[in-house]
Simulated scan of single mutants.
Amino acid sequence: MTTTDISQLRKSYERAELSEEASRADPLDQFGQWLQEAIQAQVPEPNAMTLATVGSDLRPSTRIVLVKGYDAAGIVFFTNYESRKGLELAGNPYAALQFHWVELERVVRIEGVVEKTSAAESDAYYASRPLDSRIGAWASPQSQVIPGRATLVANAAKYGAQFMLNPPRPPHWGGYRLVPDEWQFWQGRKSRLHDRLRYSQRDGQWLRERLAP
């Protein structure tokens, strides 16, 4: 496809709307509703989200991670603490998340500060993972340069033989919780006049405002 072809791609968003009256007063409730609707609509990977972090060199980076829990305390995901994202969060705990449910013409953006989950929470989730995923957490030196895929395969065999059916959680692997201080909900609308609601913290309460798209 040429650049000219790409510039001519168009889509009219007409599936739904998002009004102040119909939206929830608490952004967590609104998020929960939209996530459940994405699951019910059988959207591919409805729990996949983009995580954006910023390093000490002020260069932003993004990657896809999976949300594994959410409640009033925040949005939870798990990863390698020594990966690029882990090192960037250690130096700058502020991050942003984005869900894009293409089929529903919806986007949710979340910003806030990130903290590690408790060791007990990380242990519990790690223990719930399939065995090959638990071994994989040991086998992959995430974000580091490796000679080739054979390194991963050899590492998996090594740790599989060492730990058998009961690998412990690696000390470099665990959970993070993003504590939101701002949410944005975007619903595609016709003529590019999209609905966009922002929730921000003001004196311990959520202020809901409409933003121009």
Rank of each mutant, 00 (worst) to 15 (best):
L66I: 11
E37P: 06
V65L: 12
A161Y: 03
W206T: 10
A139T: 04
S12I: 09
P170M: 04
Q201A: 14
A41T: 08
Q142H: 06
I64N: 05
V113N: 05
D71N: 15
T3K: 10
R198Y: 07
V145T: 11
L207G: 08
V107D: 10
G175E: 03
E21A: 15
Q42C: 11
R189T: 03
R63S: 11
E209G: 08
Q8E: 13
F31I: 10
L28V: 14
K116D: 00
Y13F: 14
Q36K: 13
A73K: 15
E182L: 10
M1T: 14
R15D: 10
V113C: 08
G69P: 08
T4C: 13
P170W: 07
A161D: 05
F185L: 14
E45V: 10
L152D: 01
Q162H: 03
L152F: 13
G160R: 02
V67Y: 06
S7C: 15
L87T: 09
D5T: 14
A16F: 12
V114R: 01
V43G: 13
G136I: 00
A25R: 14
Q98V: 07
D29G: 12
D195I: 04
R106T: 05
A16G: 09
L66Q: 11
T50S: 10
E209D: 11
Q187G: 09
L9G: 07
A52P: 06
V153N: 08
A124K: 09
A41R: 13
V107C: 03
Q201R: 15
Y13A: 07
T117A: 00
E45H: 11
P130I: 03
W206I: 11
G188P: 12
F163S: 00
E105T: 07
P171W: 02
Y70G: 10
I110P: 02
W101N: 07
V145H: 03
A127D: 06
S12E: 11
S128T: 06
V108T: 05
G112A: 04
I75N: 06
E82M: 06
W138I: 00
A156V: 01
A156I: 01
I146V: 13
P147I: 00
E21T: 08
P141H: 09
W34L: 10
V102Y: 13
V102E: 12
L28R: 15
E103D: 15
N166F: 03
Q142Y: 02
A124W: 02
Y70C: 10
S7Y: 10
Q187I: 08
R189A: 11
L51K: 08
R15A: 12
H194Y: 08
T117E: 03
S128C: 01
A157N: 09
D123K: 00
K190I: 05
S118V: 01
G148P: 06
L178H: 12
F163G: 02
G160L: 02
D5L: 11
P171N: 11
A150Y: 08
R134L: 00
Q144S: 04
